[in-house]
Simulated assay, not measured.
Amino acid sequence: MTYAPTRPTERTDREALRVLAADSSTQDADLLVPELRRHGFRTEHVRTGAEALRHCRKADLLLVDLDLPDRDGVELCRSIRAVCDVAIIVVTARDTELDRVLSLRAGADDYVVKPCGLAELIARIEAVMRRVRLQPSVPDDVISVGSLRIDHRTREILMDGRRIEVTRKEFDLLYLLASRPGNVFSRRQIMAQVWSDPRSKPGRTIDTHISSLRGKLGCSQWITTVRGVGFRLGLA
């Protein structure tokens, strides 16, 4: 794939825009990332879906290739959209209507087919970000649900002002459920987001962590089991 160099245009607020490119092709990334940086974007590159999932909250926009070594890009879009509202543009060589439809339904904001010109990609990035910025911005570093407060920056959980000690996985699990209170997260989603492994059977792993969290929160009604589907966070 080639990204023809272009003259840097007016940067406006690009210096503040954090772009994460998820692409298994080092050759493509080595061409794209320096060009985006030259045009003022703060751009990083990861090669796997698991890495993209771990770092998605630190980005303003993701460029996702559908052909990743550890998971399909459509599945990755769906997993990312379950935990945050970061903008997503699929950039891939796959050019079928089905891939476009599945990607957009999975949460992608736009779809670009390789090879594409750098000027077009930048224009699409700017168009997507204009749409995103028109929406209300809700910071997700601190989530408050009733008397429960979860601070992602300090990884601290407070209940009525009292600190609750949890393990790393318990924190990640509770933060995921609290990111969309009332929404049901399937076991597969939880394995993908918390354990970065959507293919493994959860067994009793999730149930054990849920049980521990219920005990520490002091009320089983904080986390509701939706039989045959998964779990959701409610109000105790």
Results as ranks from 00 to 15, higher is better:
Asp67Ile: 00
Gly40Arg: 03
Val64Pro: 03
Gly107Val: 13
Glu170Ile: 05
Asp109Leu: 09
Arg153Asn: 04
Arg18His: 08
Gly117Met: 06
Glu51Gly: 01
Leu31Phe: 01
Arg199Ala: 12
Leu213Ala: 13
Glu51His: 01
Gly107Gln: 03
Ile125Pro: 05
Arg57Glu: 12
Val145Ile: 11
Thr92Gly: 07
Ala82Asn: 06
His209Asp: 03
Arg187Gln: 03
Ala127Pro: 10
Arg47Ile: 11
Thr225Gln: 11
Ser212Val: 02
Asn183Met: 02
Val166Ser: 08
Val86Tyr: 00
Val194Pro: 03
Arg37Pro: 04
Arg227Thr: 13
Leu20Gln: 12
Ile190Lys: 05
Ala22Glu: 09
Arg162Glu: 11
Ala108Asn: 04
Met159Tyr: 07
Val184Met: 06
Asp13Glu: 14
Trp195Ser: 01
Asp151Ile: 06
Arg162Asp: 10
Val86Gly: 00
Met159Arg: 13
Arg94His: 04
Leu176Pro: 04
Arg81Leu: 08
Val46Ile: 02
Leu104Asn: 01
Arg94Ile: 13
Ser137Thr: 13
Ile210Ala: 11
Lys169Asp: 02
Arg162Ala: 10
Ser147Asp: 14
Val132Trp: 04
Val194Leu: 05
Gly107Ser: 07
Val138Arg: 15
Met191Glu: 02
Val138Cys: 14
Asp207Lys: 15
Tyr111Lys: 03
Ser220Cys: 09
Glu44Tyr: 05
Pro181Thr: 11
Ser24Gly: 14
Pro139Val: 11
Ala87Arg: 01
Ala93His: 01
Thr9Asp: 14
Val33Tyr: 03
Phe231Gln: 00
Val46His: 04
Leu53Phe: 07
Met1Lys: 07
Ile88Thr: 14
Thr2Val: 06
Asp151Tyr: 06
Asp207Phe: 07
Leu102Arg: 15
Arg11Gly: 12
Phe41His: 05
His45Ala: 06
Gly146Trp: 05
Gly146Cys: 04
Asn183Lys: 10
Arg199Cys: 01
Thr2Tyr: 03
Arg78Trp: 01
Val166Ala: 00
Arg18Met: 11
Arg38Trp: 01
Glu44Lys: 12
Ser103Met: 07
Arg130Gln: 12
Ala50Val: 12
Ile122Arg: 05
Leu217Asn: 13
Ile223Asp: 09
Met1Phe: 11
Gly107Phe: 07
Val101Thr: 13
Thr154Gly: 00
Arg180Asp: 09
Thr12Glu: 12
Asp151Gly: 04
Leu17Met: 15
Asp70Ile: 03
Met191Ile: 02
Ala59Lys: 06
Arg133His: 13
Leu233Cys: 07
Asp23Arg: 09
Leu134Gly: 14
Val46Cys: 10
Gln189Phe: 00
Arg18Leu: 02
Ser200Met: 04
Ile122Asn: 01
Val74Cys: 06
Leu213Thr: 10
Ile164Val: 15
Arg18Trp: 07
Ser25Cys: 12
Asp72His: 15
Ser186Leu: 08
His39Asp: 11
Arg71Gln: 14
Leu63Ala: 08
Asp151Met: 05
Leu121Gly: 10
Ile206Phe: 04
Asp60Val: 05
Tyr3Leu: 15
Phe41Cys: 04
Asp140Asn: 13
Ala178His: 07
Arg204Gln: 09
Leu217Lys: 09
Ala52Ile: 04
